[in-house]
Amino acid sequence: MAWLNGILNKSVLINLAVASVVFALFYAWNTRYDLALRDVQYFNGWTLAACIAIMMLLTLRKRMVILPFGRVRFWLLVHYYLAILTVGAFLVHTRFKLPDSLLEWVLWSLFVLVAVSGIFGALISKYIPPKLEAHGERIMFERIPVFRNQLAIEAEALARESVKDGTASIAKLYVDVLGNFFAGPRNILAHLHSSHVPLARVLDELSSIERYLDDAGKARLVKMRELVETKDNLDFQYANAGLLRLWPFLHLPPTYALLVIAVVHVILAYAFSARIG
């Protein structure tokens, strides 16, 4: 739960409290509408739509880099805490029940997908960057392939050099294990949950040949160990930074689909409204 303590700091708790109070006010107002024999679905439905519209302003703000619309960080916070209200308004709008028809299921599924991916994204956006900072050198994601290639070349060169000296242990290990290790991103899942097992396994392999090496060979082994550790950090950065770049694929495209189906939903709601007064 340490990660949770890291997320729930004082300011977050205050913001959550404010969001909760706002939701409570909304719920009270919604209940008032309901008790007053009004068609409360219009009230909570339009509240939900308004929340979604305001959350969409984050995207707009990101595109407008020149106009002074406040910092993106501010809009991101608005996005986060409004999302809590939006989920609440959605639950109220759906009367805390599962849908009954195809179109409603599509709409419900899209909203749930957007909401769940959004919550997931918010959590990992808070959790992963400190993890990346704390884990070795922080590498720009776009440069990772270049560095990976660079390390692979160096490792291969080291293996070739050891052959020339007549100590083939490192070269053999390179052929059996290290070559594949340096060839591309490895141990993605292990890195996502910060497992050191894959690295330890490779390092153990390196340690196991140390006794067969002379001093020059041991120097190369030290060098190779550094390359392995650097490559492991590279994989760690790739896995976690990659996750930060991939989750929006589950958030943004469904959002656009959600907007389309929501518009259809609104049109249908007005077309078939009983208009109770």
Binding site: L252, P253, P254, Y256, A257, V260, I261
Partner: peptide, 13 residues
């Protein structure tokens, strides 16, 4: 992906 999702939603609707 966003365009495809939008087109898919419009098509389904």
């Amino acid at each position: 992906a966003g365009l495809w999702a939008t087109a898919l939603a419009v098509g389904v609707a």
